[in-house]
């Protein structure tokens, strides 16, 4: 299976990358404001949460806006990929019923798009740090392995959701609710470590990969602190395992996808 995977990556890499770039390009070309939305969307939500937490709930926290913005960006990348993978095969039917494409390529293309948007949006994080007087240290570079692990975990989970989504029509609706739950358990606009009672905060931060990655990114960017490598390694391994499971499923059953949808 791995050999097939490597061969497929080699043969279809150009297609996947071109498809992702074309998607990005078409979004930019659509209207002038369009690519600004990649930044505007998390930025506006940042204002909403900052207003609610700081003004309505009257909780003061230094640089809260940056804190929220990092969380929102990571979440958006994960969330949009998983949601779209539930109906990915059905939506790509036009292409899939004409030629053979390894199905994971479609998902990888989606992740490429989502990650690119996230990286663009992240430049704003660094700008905001500059204005808020947060000195970025070298440990900011830990964002890179964190992003890599995020991509692997998203890829693995996305493959599994994509496979089930072929057979289960209302998976999209189910995922919406489930992801909302995960959203509130990821500490996007609150601090899990200090805001959730022990031992639940520990559990959440270790067993929810998104909570862990968001938390670690904040530490790396805002406090120049290294992530917990044990947990990072654990999620890398889990991500790879999810991917292997997803790949073996999609390889075994992709033959039937076009017949079902």
């Amino acid at each position: 299976m791995l050999r097939r995977f490597i061969r497929d990556v080699k043969n279809y890499k150009t297609y996947g990358v071109y498809s992702a770039k074309a998607t990005l390009k078409s979004e930019v070309a659509g209207s002038y404001l369009n690519w600004l939305w990649w930044i505007l969307d998390p930025l506006l939500f940042m204002l909403v949460y900052t207003f609610i937490v700081q003004v309505v709930f009257n909780k003061r926290m230094p640089n809260f806006h940056i804190y929220v913005f990092i969380g929102l960006n990571v979440w958006k990348m994960f969330n949009s990929t998983i949601i779209s993978s539930a109906s990915l095969i059905r939506l790509s039917k036009g292409v899939l019923s004409k030629v053979y494409v390894p199905k994971f390529i479609m998902l990888a293309s989606k992740i490429y798009v989502a990650t690119f948007k996230m990286v663009v949006s992240f430049t704003l994080v660094f700008l905001m740090c500059l204005f808020s007087g947060i000195a970025l240290g070298l440990r900011v570079l830990y964002c890179i392995p964190l992003l890599a692990v995020l991509c692997v975990v998203t890829f693995g989970l996305g493959l599994i959701v994509m496979h089930i989504g072929v057979y289960l029509k209302d998976l999209g609706n189910m995922m919406n609710v489930f992801l909302r739950l995960v959203y509130y358990m990821s500490g996007i606009f609150f601090d899990i470590a200090n805001g959730v009672p022990y031992p639940y905060n520990e559990i959440l931060l270790k067993l929810n990969p998104i909570a862990f990655i968001i938390q670690s990114m904040r530490q790396a960017i805002m406090y120049n602190t290294a992530p917990d490598f044990l947990v990072l390694g654990f999620w890398l391994v889990m991500g790879v395992l999810f991917s292997l499971l997803g790949l073996s499923w999609t390889y075994r059953y992709e033959n039937n996808y076009v017949k079902v949808v």
Binding site: Y15, A22, S26, S92, G94, V95, V99
Partner: peptide
């Protein structure tokens, strides 16, 4: 055979 949200030019390449 096409990705509907993309322009024809890109679809030629794809």
């Amino acid at each position: 055979g096409f990705q509907r949200e993309l322009p024809g030019s890109d679809n030629i390449y794809l």
